[in-house]
Design a protein around this nucleic acid. Sequence first.
DNA 1: CCCGATAAATTGACAGCGTCAATATTGACT
DNA 2: AGTCAATATTGACGCTGTCAATTTATCGGG
Lengths: 198, 198
Amino acid sequence: MSKKKFHHGNLKQALLDATLKLIDAKAVSAVTIRAVAEETGVSHAAPVNHYRDRRELLTAAANVVFNEILEMTDRRLAASDVPVRERLFATAHVLYEYAMKHPNRYAFIWRSDLVDHENEALLKTMDTLYYKYCIQDEASAPKTGFDHDTLAVMMWSMVHGYVDLRMKGMFEERKDGVTGQERLPAMIDLLKGAIFNE
Amino acid sequence: MSKKKFHHGNLKQALLDATLKLIDAKAVSAVTIRAVAEETGVSHAAPVNHYRDRRELLTAAANVVFNEILEMTDRRLAASDVPVRERLFATAHVLYEYAMKHPNRYAFIWRSDLVDHENEALLKTMDTLYYKYCIQDEASAPKTGFDHDTLAVMMWSMVHGYVDLRMKGMFEERKDGVTGQERLPAMIDLLKGAIFNE
DNA sequence: CCCGATAAATTGACAGCGTCAATATTGACT
DNA sequence: AGTCAATATTGACGCTGTCAATTTATCGGG
């Protein structure tokens, strides 16, 4: 029971759903308070009761997305029993796959003009993703002869940078004809090989 | 002669200057047509005579920035007679240094919701930067045992990704205490070492 | 059972934004 | 001098986020 069918139901969740729906269907620029309100069937000022402003709504939505990525990583690493030294690369693949599958969501979560990356809940989710799967604990980190922190930052930067630039038209099949589906995994492999001297 | 002191002088250039000034001082979000007009001392609708809309103005500004980076790269590579196999890394350093020195400009040029990256002039500048300094010509590319295209994309992605994520608060000195001034060069060196087996 | 308290939603307003149409002004050219 | 086109101004429009005032619905206690 708790909160069912008050005036609307739980509008808070409905607003969040509408937000993500609009992001997927169009882009985050289509997420106006008024559009979200209409999509949800309430008046243009109703959302203020649940989210102080647009930024707070979008920050909540970003948190949902980061949690999705986190869960996706959990599944990948838990299911197939990935060896320790492969964890960082597996995480990189997950990040890349998520971005390819949900480009609008991925682009959106990094829009710091729209999302408050200092938000406590969001910060916690992001830190979990980063420290749990990239940094790991010192002991279980694979021995490579390279500083593991630096490797983690490198991998994360490489994946994000590639995805971000690609979405903006760099590395497009303008002259080289190589599609993104092939190129990033190759980059990850190259790095892996270089690190492990294979 | 040509165009001096018509009504304003050459408003077109003045608008561009005001745009970059606002980007540096505040952020690209502060670049409203009206603010730029006021900064330049003309009425709010004057800019339309020189730039169709806000997007066109910002695209022109982005072109200026890309050209700055291009020139900065030119100077770096020409002056110190950088050996061929170091060119890619030198370019990476330039990109990084520019981003550190002009963070607002760097963040702005990748805002594809505001800048038209399909614009012909801009595309040409970007391609020059990319193909001239990253891809180079096949013959003069250093022999590394790795596909040079892939290396170039990797390097570019890594630098951009690191800068972008850092600006958004990842890799902040939250727990590790490492500043960006030290970390990216270390990453570049690590990659260089891995590639050249040193 | 009803009635206040309170949470939730509506309505209406406001300023700021980009942009367009109508108008006025200026400089260049014949 | 007088015409014309380029350039700038003014005023308006619809859209945005947000706030204040108001209305509506639900809950808890008499």
